[in-house]
Amino acid sequence: MLKLHDLSRIYQTDDVETIALNSVNIEIEQGEFVAIMGPSGCGKSTLLNIIGMLDNPSEGKYLFLDEEISWYPETKLAQIRKHNIGFIFQSFNLIDELSVEENIELALLYHNVPASERKKRVAEVMDKVGIAHRAKHMPSQLSGGQQQRVAVARAIVGDQKMILADEPTGNLDSAHGQEVMEMLQTLNDEGTTIVMVTHSPAHADYAKRTINLFDGQVVTENVRAA
């Protein structure tokens, strides 16, 4: 699915140079469930942003579906991104002014999907994540777990092949966290590639592979025994 080769990301400010990622080599296959772990500031989020094409690497190569994209301009990346990648954030990032179904529909608005088709697909994913009964509610009326389910629905409504989750359970209690993890597990079982940053070893266990980062470098990779 994607391949990072000797990839580095250096933040340059006026007089300080911070190396966030240092010659990282990672390969992720289609249908994998990968967890990225490591202490604060080790480069987890930077890595996820680059994989999600929200940020460009300073050096190295990024092959996505066998296409070298590290030098692509923002507009081209946006095209690839919106058809292939869904995002889930720790803080949910739902739009407060839109209802549940409108938030989910938002992802399709930028895909040129006709209105009737949008309605159908939004209804489908709401069923899938079990939020259909809250369709007309506003985010502020939902619990954290429910909000994150909406975010998951939004991430998959465009038939994205890969989901990037940045600490998706970080703001949830354990019961709701569990719920979200199980949902991701189901999605993975159905063939969606999932890359997740997490602090929780328990939740990392859902992944088939865990990549540990430290000071911008990959230190270990553990593959869970099948």
């Binding site: 929200l54 946006a78 991104r81 995002f87 990032n93 739009i95 938002l106 930028y110 895909h111």
Partner: peptide
């Protein structure tokens, strides 16, 4: 800005 960032993430030009 959050809304804008999100929309961009979702593919808005």
């Amino acid at each position: 800005t959050r809304e804008v960032g999100l929309r961009k993430t979702l593919g808005a030009s």
